[in-house]
Amino acid sequence: MAQVMVTRPAVRTGARLRRAGRAEAFIVPVVLLALWETASRAGLVQAYLLPPPSAVVAYLASALLSGELVTHVAVSVMRVLAGFSAGVALALPAAVAVGLSPRAERLLDPTLQAIRGIPSLAWVPLLLLWMGIDEAPKVTLIAIGAFFPFYLNLVAGIHGIDRKLVEVGRVQGLSQLQIIRHILLPGALPSALTGLRAGMNMAWLFLVAAELIAGTRGLGFLLTDGRELSRADIVLGAILLLALLGKFFDGILKVLENRLLRWRDSLKEAKADA
C-alpha cells in the first residue's frame, strides 16, 4: 500500500511534466502568429501580399462552411495515402533484395540512385504523356516520392544488422524467408519506421507537384488558384493546411514508432522520461 501511495504522486508529476512539455511546442508558433498579426495590422507589410492570420482563418472558415475545403482536403489526403502505400509496397521488396544480395545491389542500386536524383517536376510531363490527366499520374508521382526514403532507410537498417545473428539463424536451420521475417525485418525495424516517416513527409512534398498535373481539386490546386486570383489568403491557407496535415500524419507514425520500439533503452527514451 505504501508503495502505491509513493508511486501515484510520481505518476501525476510525470503526467504534468509531459503536458507542460507538449505545451512548450506551441510557444514559437503563437509568438510568430502574434508578430505576424501585429505587423499586418500596423501596416508594416502590405495586406494583399501578407494578410494577417485572422484573414487567413476567416477564409478557411468560410471555405469550410461551404464544403469546398472538406473536398480539397479529402482529395489530397486520399492521394497521399494511395501514393504513400504504393511507394512503400514497392520499396519493401526492392530494399530487402538489395540489403540481402550483393548481386541485387550491383544490379538495382545504381539505377535507383540515379532515378532518385530526378527532380519531382521533371516527372510531370512524362507522366502526363504516359497516363493522361486523371488520378494515375498524381498517385504515381507521390509514390515515387515516398519510395526512396523508405528504400534507403530499410537498406541501411538491413546492412547494419549484426552478421552473427544471421549466421546463428542459418545454424538453427532457418530458411531464407524465416531469416528475413524473424531476424532481418525486426532488426531493421527502427530504420524502417524512420523511413516511413520520411516517406510520408516526402509524399506531402510531392503532392503539390502532383496536383499541378491538370488538377481541379486538392490543396495543390488551391495554391495555384490563389496565385491566379492574387489571393494571398488562399495561398497561405493552403500552406497552413499542408503543414498541419503533414504534422498530423507524422504524429500518427511517431506514435506507432514509439509503441513498436518501446523496448529500446536509448538517449531519446531517456529524454522523453526526463
Rank of each mutant, 00 (worst) to 15 (best):
Gly157Asn: 05
Pro149Met: 11
Gly132Trp: 11
Gly132Phe: 08
Ala188Asp: 03
Ser175Asn: 10
Phe150His: 09
Arg170Gln: 13
Leu141Ala: 06
Met131Lys: 11
Leu127Asp: 01
Asn153Arg: 13
Trp130Thr: 05
Ala156Gly: 06
Asp134Arg: 15
Ala188Leu: 09
Glu167Lys: 14
Lys138Thr: 03
Val168Asn: 06
Tyr151Arg: 13
Arg170Met: 07
Thr140Glu: 01
Leu185Arg: 13
Pro190Tyr: 11
Met131Asp: 00
Leu184Cys: 02
Val168Arg: 10
Leu128Met: 14
Ala136Gly: 01
Ile180Met: 13
Ile142Pro: 02
Gln178Gly: 04
Pro190Ile: 14
Lys164Met: 11
Ile133Glu: 01
His182Gly: 00
Ser191Ala: 15
Gly160Val: 04
Ile144Trp: 05
Leu128Tyr: 03
Ala146Lys: 12
Glu167Thr: 12
Ala156Cys: 05
His159Ser: 08
Pro190Phe: 12
Ala136Lys: 15
Ile158Asp: 01
Glu135Gly: 03
Ile180Asn: 05
Asp134Asn: 14
Leu129Ser: 11
Val168Asp: 00
Ala146Ile: 04
Ile180Ala: 12
Gly157Trp: 07
Ala188Thr: 08
Phe148Arg: 13
Phe147Gln: 09
Ile133Val: 15
Phe147Leu: 12
Val168Leu: 14
Thr140Val: 14
Ala192Asp: 03
Gly173Cys: 10
Trp130Asn: 02
Pro186Glu: 08
Val166Met: 09
Leu189Asp: 06
Ile161Thr: 09
Val139Pro: 05
Tyr151Ser: 04
Thr140Gln: 05
Ala192Asn: 11
Leu165Phe: 14
Ala143Tyr: 07
Ile183Ser: 02
Glu135Cys: 04
Leu193His: 10
His159Met: 06
Leu127Met: 12
Ile180Val: 15
Met131Ala: 13
Pro190Glu: 09
Leu184Trp: 05
Ile161Gln: 07
